[in-house]
Each structure stands twice: as structure tokens, then as C-alpha cells.
Design a protein around this nucleic acid. Structure first.
Lengths: 342, 342
DNA sequence: ACACGAAGCCAAAGCGCTTTGAACGCCGGT
DNA sequence: ACCGGCGTTCAAAGCGCTTTGGCTTCGTGT
């Protein structure tokens, strides 16, 4: 059933039917009712391909997926997707994933724009002065960043959590507990979130006249293995940290393993706070010693991003609002005062 | 730059230019060269929306993403995506994710078909007699299943790993080591993969006149917490298992935690084999006791699925070929003979 | 010399929608 | 009695591609 058939059936022009269905004002309310009613009864649904061609709007949002044999998609992504899906579902909003070589994302963004494949995109894992943000800004494709990209002189819409504040507060807490040698096991410090977290830690330390010694700030891909390696190295060095802040639960697994292997205990020998993105399959309270965390649901962020994206597509939101969410600091058994003799 | 402009520029008809570009035979090779050359020089790219409308083909593949507040997307999904992306990238093939309420996926599939949104879909986490498979078969939308759905009297294309064989072999190995009380910590047994794994275990046991006692086969969502709970329950019961087979590394984390908490050791008190889908962020060799595994890269499967899907879209593959991959059995330190006195 | 098929090209008709520009009837105001 | 304007509807022109059917032109066999 297409528009033509429907309009013939109603003895109206395609124009009128189209307008009735799309809520244009210049159609008689009585007529609109008839049209809407008939459309529903016959299960008429406008052909999206035709509509796309006519309007240029696709009703889809896009995401350029960095791939490559050396690239591992962040496991957080799936949790984010859950959130996005939760919200998008109700609006029949689809998400288009365009895989791209990690080095050549720009080409893909250009293609997306040239092809008018989506109405907006979202960008994740941004870095300072992220080229994608700059590109999208000039290309004029609406976008929303999950995270932040510092260093631009224009505003753009984003949703971020207060990484700096979270790690600042967590560090301050450790300091209040008497810790002085506090280490940071961070993610890739080319990304903004990691930079902000490091900044938070340093600021808290500096506020107390402290600074992390050499080798006590590490930046690696957030795997269990890296958590282990880094922790092992730190803990075996002279002046080992008495507390560690860690950017992910998965790395924390590795840290715990290192601690155990060295015959140390948490929190007896080492206090540990990790960032928790809230996964259902790995919970900080279930660590052998329940883990203190900075917590922020990445899934909720996904839902909010979908919400804002949809608002933007329907013209309800505009401008370049940045939104920063506070982060919970959840204290569990993994932190304590400084071990005696340290 | 659109087709019209390009054809005027070349002083040819749109027909000829279109045909030249799409490789139709009835165009002079000399002419084709000119056209292709000009198209490249001017960066002409056919408008996909227009092409869609004309042909009905979209050049995209779809996936219906089950969502809902109670639904957690499988973390394996992201690894699968990596593989899919690796391959799809080179072909500029995009993936459309359509979020759907877990209970109402059917509606979404119908919408996708009615709207001609994608040329094919892939289906994951199939169950026996999966309604999606039946639906897609009748709707006539090309599809490819990752996994298998038993119980249909027609063939359909799928890619699966030999779950039954893997768990059979792993169990047999444990039996050969002298184990008699072997338990299975499985995933959701409404899904085919879990059913096959259980079947593999039972078959190996039966082959030796054994059978799992009550309570030694569990089926839960594959989280760390469930691994812990189940293992704890099993190990504290009378006639505790001396060996456990486990369907995921994440659950294995929980099992290890339970073992440790009970003051037991691996492999001294308990042998453990888990299935490894090959994640970069959690590796079996890095468990405190290196884990023996049945191993199959889910990422490779993603790539292969993309490959087959693409072959199918370009008409190279047809029919309903099922493909089953063998699974590696990798022995590491987590298994040993039966503890004395058991 | 003519017919016939193949090779190569083209004009135009879709695909199914939105949107422009115009038409129609009817009202109130002058 | 006439005109401007409003409310409502419509025919037709896109959007940019593919594909049908037809039209030349040229070489070949009779």
C-alpha cells in the first residue's frame, strides 16, 4: 500500500494525504481524521527510501566504528549501546554503524555526509582537539559527543561525566586516610577522560603538597593484563604506592591478582579505588575484597545521548550544550588507612 | 555532482553513464573508460537514497538489537562487532542496528522488511525453533545465523562452532584424568549453544557410564556473580564436583573466587575448564592459575559472517549452507588428576 | 542488392514520497 | 456588486537513480 493507492481510495490527492499524515496545518481536521484513520486501517507506512530521497532525512543516527586488526572495540561500547537502545527503541530510531579503519575515520565521515546516510552522529572516546569534532563542525553534520574534546574555541554538544572531580575526590579521600604515595593506573592518556582523571588526581595531591613520584602514573589500554603488569611493577619498586586509583574494573582485576601474587593484601597493604561503569557481569561489590569505586552508569549515558539526539532531530534541542554528570564515590572495603611502617 | 551533470559533461545519456558505471556489457569499452575516468576525477558517487528507491537495495545489513531495562546486551557482541567491522570496512558495508523490545522483535523484523531497510540481517543467540528464523524464512529476507537453531525442517545458512564437540572432548579429558564428579556451569539453557554444550558433557559422561548428579548442571546468565554463586553452592554440597566445565571466562572468574573463598585450590581440589571466546581484555592464561579452555575466536566468526553476508549480497553465495567450526582445546594449569580421597 | 542481427546509444518511464504554485469556493468588508 | 483573503484542495514538478523499449549504425550472409 503506497501513498497513491491510499489517496485514490480516499478520493483525495496525494498532496492532501501526505500533509494530513505529516501534521501540516492547512488540512481540514475532519479530512485529517479520515486520512489518519484509513492509513491505520490499511497499515499504510510511507516508504522510507522515497521519503529520504525527497527530504534528505533518514531518521537514523550514525556511529563510525573504528576497526582494524590492532583495534579492540571498547567493551564499554556494548553497555552504552544497551542504554541507547533502551531509549531509541520507543522512537523506532535506528543506529547505523559504519566500520572504518581507525586511521581513516575522516574519509568515512565525509562519505556519510556526502551520502546523507544519517541525520546525526555520535562520537565517543574523544581526545583533545579531536579531529572528528572539528570535521563534523565544518561539515555541518549534527553530532553529539560522549565525553569531551578540549581545546576548541567553539562550543559543541556533549555529554560527559565529571572525571576530574571524581578522581579528585577519590584521591582526597585517600589522602585523608593518611596516604601519601598514591598511584594512578589509567587508561590511554591520549583520550580526554584519562587526562581529566589524571588531572583530578594531581590536583588533589598538589592541594596537599604532594605529587605522584615517577612511575606512579601509568597509562595503558584497559585490560586485565595491563592492570596486572602495571601494579606488579609499581608494587615491586622502591617506594611502592600504598594506594592505587584505577580507571577500570577490568584493570582492577589485574591489580588484585598482582597484589595477591605478591602476598600482599587489600586494604592492609594497599588501598584500591577503581572506576565502575556499571556492568551487570562484573560488579565491584563482588571482588574478593569489595571494591570502592567512582561510579557512573555508562548505560544511563547511552540513554541520555539517544534522548538528546532525538530531541535534536525533531528540532527540540539546538545549540551546543555541554552536560556534565556528577560521579558517585562509593566506599567499600578496599580502602583503609596507611599500613604501619609505610 | 549527480548523474545528470556527469552525463551532460560527457555528452552521453544518463542511461549509458549509469550502465558504464555499473558494469553492464552493452557499453563500448572505450566509452566505459571515459566514463569511469571522468567519474573518478569529479568524485562522482551515486546518491544511495536514489539508488535505493530505484532498486530497493540498500547495501546495508541489519541486526535487531534486543533491549529493555532487564536485558543486558552480551559483552561478546562487541567482540563480534570488531570482527564484522574488520571485514565490512573494506567493502563500505554498513550495519544497521534496530533496537527492539526483547519481547517484540518480530514487529521490528517486519518493519525492517516492509521498509526495505536492509538487504540482509544476521541473527545471534538463537534458540531451538527460533521464531526469528522461522519468521525471516517466511518473510524472505536473506539472513545468516550466528549459532544454530535446531528443529526446523528446512535448511538455512548459519555459522556455528562445534559446542557439543568441544565440551564433549573437554569432558572426556577430565574423565581420562580420573574425574567422575564433573559439573557444568552453563549459560542460559534456552539458547542452543548451551544446550549443545550440555549435550556434549552428558554424552562424554554417558560414554563412560557416568551422569551428572542433581545440581551439578546449572544454567544462568553468564555473570561473574552467577559463576560464584553456582560454584559456591556446588562446592559446598555433599559429593562436590572435582571438576567443573564452564561456559564463559567471566563466570570462571566467579568460580575461582568461590574456590579461593572456600580455601580450596585449583587444580588441587578442583579442575576447571572454561570456554574462551578470545577477548583482549581478559585472557585465560592470566588467571591466577592459568585456565584450560575450549577456545574459539568470536571475532573471527564476526569477520566470517560479514564475508558470507557480502558474498550473499553480491549473489556469490546462495543456498542455505551451515558451517561449523571446530574448537580448540587448550590445556593449561587448571586441570589435574582427581584429588586424593575423592 | 537486401535483410537481419549485433553493438551501442538514447529518451522516457518508473521508484514513492514531499513540496511548490495554483485553483477553487466562500466569507466579510467596502 | 466587487474584491481581497482565508481555508482547503489539487496537479505537477521535483529528488537522482535504474531500466525498459526503441532507435541507429554497421557488418554479415544470401
Amino acid at each position: 500500500m503506497n501513498l497513491k493507492q491510499l489517496s485514490q481510495m480516499l478520493e483525495l490527492s496525494q498532496t492532501t494525504v501526505s500533509r494530513a499524515l505529516n501534521g501540516y496545518p492547512e488540512v481540514n481536521e475532519e479530512t485529517r481524521r479520515r486520512v489518519v484513520d484509513a492509513a491505520k486501517r490499511h497499515g499504510y507506512r510511507p516508504n522510507p527510501s522515497a521519503r529520504r530521497l525527497a527530504t534528505g532525512k533518514t531518521g537514523m543516527i550514525g556511529y563510525v566504528l573504528p576497526t582494524g586488526s590492532a583495534v579492540d572495540i571498547d567493551p564499554h561500547f556494548v553497555e552504552f549501546l544497551s542504554g541507547l537502545g533502551d531509549y531509541a527503541r520507543a522512537h523506532e530510531l535506528d543506529l547505523v554503524l559504519s566500520p572504518a579503519d581507525a586511521e581513516e575515520q575522516e574519509t568515512t565521515y565525509r562519505r556519510i555526509v556526502a551520502n546523507k546516510q544519517v541525520d546525526a552522529v555520535y562520537v565517543s572516546s574523544p581526545r583533545p582537539q579531536d579531529s572528528r569534532v572539528a570535521l563534523l563542525d565544518t561539515l555541518g553534520l549534527p553530532f553529539l559527543v560522549h565525553g569531551r574534546s578540549d581545546g576548541f574555541d567553539f562550543d559543541y554538544p556533549y555529554l560527559d561525566i565529571d572525571n576530574e572531580g571524581a578522581f579528585h575526590d577519590a584521591t582526597r579521600l585517600l589522602i585523608q586516610l593518611g596516604h601519601q604515595r598514591i598511584a594512578l593506573v589509567n587508561g590511554d592518556d591520549r583520550e580526554t577522560f584519562a587526562i581529566h582523571r589524571e588531572r583530578g588526581v594531581r590536583r588533589a595531591l598538589a592541594g596537599n603538597g604532594l605529587a605522584p613520584p615517577d612511575g606512579h602514573v601509568s597509562s595503558t589500554v584497559m585490560t586485565e593484563e595491563n592492570g596486572y603488569r602495571v601494579a606488579r611493577r609499581m608494587l615491586e619498586s622502591g617506594g611502592a604506592p600504598t594506594a592505587i586509583l584505577c580507571s577500570s574494573l577490568i584493570m582492577a582485576l589485574g591489580i588484585v591478582r598482582a597484589v595477591r601474587e605478591l602476598g600482599l593484601t587489600i586494604p592492609g597493604d594497599l588501598s584500591l579505588i577503581a572506576h565502575d561503569d556499571v556492568f551487570s557481569w562484573l560488579k565491584p561489590e563482588n571482588f574478593s575484597v569489595p571494591l570502592s569505586t567512582t561510579r557512573s552508569s555508562i548505560r544511563a549515558a547511552g540513554a541520555r545521548i539517544a534522548e538528546r539526539l532525538i530531541a535534536r532531530l525533531s528540532g527540540l534541542e539546538d545549540g551546543a550544550r555541554g552536560e556534565v554528570w556528577p560521579v558517585d564515590l562509593v566506599v567499600r572495603g578496599s580502602i583503609a588507612g596507611v599500613p604501619a611502617g609505610s
